[in-house]
């Protein structure tokens, strides 16, 4: 059982003085993930908010080995470091045991870094890839990605006179990674820190690649109040918009089941990016999102052997 008091014993591997926005979810995710790491660790980060804000030369917020290469190649870069590790270990040139963790936003993971991620997962490198999914290209100013939810207002899926926001559902990346037959895949939320910490621990223990998709609040992009980040992250789980589950060797387990799912309107209403859904002209959109969430949840129940 993970206890916060025990987690505070590790010296944090991310320092204060990073320049992420007030109330950003990304550093909360990194902080929580790294508190459970016991070995020396090499971190790779894809270009994005997390990377630019934590390593503004000559400052670095990383108290660990860190590499940023480019936007689309955190997975392939880290697979190179992990291979160097295996080679040097095999030749007796390195004594220490290492962990390898990559972080990428949804743009760098779902979209431009998708091929490199797929390649690294397929090749079987022992590394953990954590996607902090805030559902758009926030670093460049809130452009839609393939993780942006249906109906969301972004600067490249703007609400206009004839188009009410993004017209496509988000890509289910967690399931796509599971289809690579990697030993551990999970979806998590920083509000549920205990669940997330346990998943990171498990991921680091498997003898192969692992992937955790984590919902990350972006107050700027979501148009939510800075202080509501954890509250809204919790609601995402309680409405089944962001279910918490894991896939171990192909077996699906739901790790948290809301006693009674709350309506999606509770998730949509506090977010400015969904404001237009409540305009008279767009009647029915909220219901359509509810139907989509219900279908997804039923599918997940079925996959985890709990179909009703």
């Amino acid at each position: 059982m993970v206890k916060l008091k025990d987690l505070t014993k590790n010296k944090g591997l991310l320092s204060g003085g990073h320049r992420l926005c007030q109330g950003c979810g990304a550093s909360v995710i990194v902080h929580q993930a790294l508190q459970v790491v016991e070995n020396p660790v090499v971190i790779a980060v894809a270009t994005g908010c997390l990377e630019v804000s934590t390593t503004i030369y000559p400052f670095t917020a990383w108290r660990t080995s860190f590499i940023h290469n480019a936007f689309e190649n955190a997975a392939s870069t880290l697979s190179g470091v992990e291979t160097a590790y295996r080679s040097l270990k095999k030749q007796g040139k390195l004594a220490a045991d290492y962990n390898f963790i990559a972080f990428g936003g949804d743009g760098g993971t779902y979209d431009i870094g998708f091929q490199a991620l797929s390649g690294a997962m397929e090749r079987g490198h022992r590394l953990l890839y954590i996607c902090y999914d805030n559902g758009a290209y926030m670093n460049t100013g809130i452009q839609r990605s393939s993780a942006t939810p249906w109906g969301a207002n972004t600067t490249t899926s703007p609400v206009g006179k004839v188009i009410p926001g993004k017209k496509q559902y988000r890509k289910e990346l967690t399931e796509i990674i599971a289809a690579h037959n990697v030993p551990y895949v999970a979806q998590a939320s920083p509000y549920h820190w205990k669940d997330f910490s346990r998943k990171v621990k498990k991921a680091l223990e498997v003898a192969g690649p692992s992937f955790i998709n984590v919902l990350s609040v972006c107050p700027r992009g979501w148009r939510t109040a800075e202080n509501k980040g954890m509250e809204i992250t919790k609601i995402a789980v309680e409405t089944n918009v962001w279910p918490l589950y894991e896939i171990e060797d192909g077996e699906y387990h739901i790790t948290y089941k809301p006693k009674k799912a709350r309506p999606v309107i509770e998730w949509l209403k506090p977010q400015g990016r969904f404001k237009h859904l409540f305009a008279e002209a767009n009647t029915g959109m909220v219901e359509q999102i509810q139907q989509h969430v219900n279908r997804r949840w039923q599918k997940l129940l079925k996959l985890s052997g709990q179909a009703q």
Binding site: S27, P190, M230
Partner: peptide
């Protein structure tokens, strides 16, 4: 401590002892 984006909750021996105002950006989480 778990939810602070700025790593600004000061902890000693597993107990909160204060806020690091040098780094706290005041988000209010």
């Amino acid at each position: 401590w778990a939810y602070c984006p700025d790593l600004a909750i000061e902890v000693e021996d597993g107990l909160v002892i204060g806020v690091d105002y040098a780094h706290c950006k005041g988000c209010g989480i």
